[in-house]
Amino acid sequence: MSHDHSIDPNNMPKDPAKATMEGKHKFLGLWIFLGGETVLFACLFGTYLALKDSAAGGPTTQELYGLGLVFLMTMLLLTSSLTSVYAIYHMKNNDFKKMQLWMGITALLGIAFLACEIYEFAHYIHDYGFTFRSSAFGSAFYALVGFHGGHVVFGLSWIIVLMIRNAKRGLDLYNAPKYNTFALYWHFIDVVWVFIFTVVYLMGMVS
């Protein structure tokens, strides 16, 4: 690898994530990508809303949903968004160790969220026989919530790989943008969940 004088760990700028052209490209690129993701989830929400009352004799929204678990999941994910903000705060101050620590906490919260979600799905399948195939409502529910879950899995893999890869070499101008874009992505997942919490669970229990 040729020497690259744009990266100098001893002379880090104030906001290392956006100090290089590549960093700026990545950050804007991810923002734009999230625009597309918004449409993707909007379409899934639309499909869910169109099919949520098509239970085809199976369990309905009111029979299925329980607020306690979902509330816990919401708290876990919201908190993880907050901890990723701490991590980025420490990155801007070039404190690599603290950044890794808070990113680690973020990942743990994400894993906890995922565990809850798996428990929830298993509960629906075993206790209600409510599956992806049982009705149009089932298909739409698992498609929407499952796509979100898939995004969580992807985000978790991303941050875990980043943390392991950079554990020894510390922060530099090459990897800082990667952490930064991850944080942005993670916030997006969080926002989507807030909509799922409201549109799927809260509205499902009321109506």
Binding site: F132, S134, A136
Partner: peptide
């Protein structure tokens, strides 16, 4: 992304037995 979602639903219906477009299951 709208096409992506549409294709996913079509894929699930054809290959994994979901019921997005199946009138019999709502």
């Amino acid at each position: 992304p709208a096409l992506t979602v549409g294709l996913f639903l079509m894929m699930f219906d054809r290959m994994f037995g979901s019921a997005f477009f199946d009138a019999a299951l709502g």
